[in-house]
Nucleic acid binder design. Structure first.
Length: 250
DNA sequence: AAAGATTGCAACCGCGGGGGT
DNA sequence: CACCCCCGCGGTTGCAATCTT
C-alpha cells in the first residue's frame, strides 16, 4: 500500500519545533495519550502532521529520554549489538533504556563507524574528535559501508544484517556472519542441536556476562508483551551465539 | 577576525507490515 | 479475501554549531 503523503503538504508546518509546540504536544499527550497520531495534531491544535508529532515525542519529548553523551558502556553496547543485528536501530535502542533509535543511528554514523574504521586501519591511533584530516576525510567518503573492503568490523556488521533481512524466520543459516568468528572455511553455518542446547542453557543461567543483556532481559521478561520477549530472545540468542563463537576462537 | 570545512543532531521521506473492516 | 489506514522503521537531508586555516 502506498502510504498517505506525509503532512498532506497542505498548510502544515515543517522544520524545527518551537517551545510552544513542544509544550502543546506534551500537554496534550499527558492528558489524552497518543492513541492515534493522525488525529492528535488536530485535537491538540498543532499545525503538524501526526508523523512529525510522533517523531518529536519519541525522539525528544518523551519523559524517559536520557539525554547527554553516550557512556563508553553504551557505545560498546551499540558496537556489539550492531555487529550482531546490523542496522536494526529500534532493536538496538530497545536494549539501551532512554536512548532512541534516531539517536543511536546518529551516534553510529557520526562517531562509532568512524572510530571502527580508523581503528581497523591504524590500531592505536585515536579517532580525531573533530575536523577530520585527510585520511579521515577519505574514510568519511566511504559512505557506503559495503564499499570498504578492508574493514573487518564493517563486514562483521553488515553480514548479520544481510543474513537477517534476507533469510526467513525459519532459515537459521548464519552465512557469512560467522566467517570472522572461527568457521572461516564454511560458507554457511548450520545451527545444530548442540548450539541450541548450549545457547538456551546460557540464556537461562546467564548472569552478568554482558552489558545490558542479562538484566534488561530479565526486566523485559516481566513485561506482558510477548513480542517484546520474542525480540529479546533473538537478540540475546544472536549475541550469545556471537560470544560463543568468539570464545571458541580463543 | 573571517571564511571555509566539517561535524552532529533534529527532522523528513518513503516503504513495508500489521490490524481492522 | 482484499482493501485501506495507520504505525514504525531505516535511510537521508538540512542546518546550526564548531573547528581549522
Amino acid at each position: 500500500m502506498v502510504s498517505a503523503p506525509c503532512c498532506e503538504k497542505m498548510g502544515l508546518k515543517r522544520g524545527p519545533w518551537t517551545a510552544e509546540e513542544d509544550m502543546t504536544l506534551v500537554a496534550h499527550i499527558e492528558q489524552h495519550g497518543h492513541s492515534n497520531w493522525r488525529v492528535l495534531p488536530k485535537q491538540a491544535g498543532l499545525l503538524r502532521c501526526g508523523k512529525s508529532c510522533r517523531l518529536r515525542w519519541i525522539n525528544y519529548l518523551r519523559p524517559d529520554i536520557k539525554r547527554g553523551n553516550f557512556t563508553s558502556e553504551e557505545e560498546e553496547a551499540i558496537i556489539q549489538l550492531h555487529a550482531m543485528l546490523g542496522n536494526r536501530w529500534s532493536t538496538i535502542a530497545a536494549r539501551l533504556p532512554g536512548r532512541t533509535d534516531n539517536e543511536i543511528k546518529n551516534v553510529w554514523h557520526t562517531q562509532l563507524k568512524k572510530r571502527l574504521q580508523s581503528s581497523s586501519k591504524s590500531s592505536g591511533q585515536a579517532a580525531p574528535k573533530r575536523k577530520a584530516n585527510k585520511p579521515a576525510v577519505a574514510a568519511s567518503t566511504l559512505e557506503d559501508p559495503t564499499s570498504d573492503p578492508v574493514s573487518a568490523e564493517q563486514s562483521l556488521a553488515m553480514s548479520p544484517e544481510q543474513s537477517l533481512s534476507t533469510s526467513s524466520a525459519t532459515d537459521y543459516s548464519m552465512a557469512s556472519s560467522l566467517e570472522n568468528t572461527g568457521s572461516s572455511s564454511s560458507e554457511e553455518f548450520q545451527i545444530d542441536d548442540s548450539f541450541w542446547s548450549e545457547t538456551l542453557a546460557m540464556s537461562v543461567n546467564s548472569s552478568g556476562s554482558g552489558m545490558e543483556t542479562s538484566d534488561t532481559f530479565g526486566a523485559d521478561s516481566a513485561s506482558p508483551s510477548s513480542s517484546n520477549n520474542e525480540m529479546d530472545f533473538w537478540v540475546t540468542l544472536f549475541m550469545q551465539a556471537g560470544d560463543m563463537h568468539s570464545l571458541s576462537q580463543i
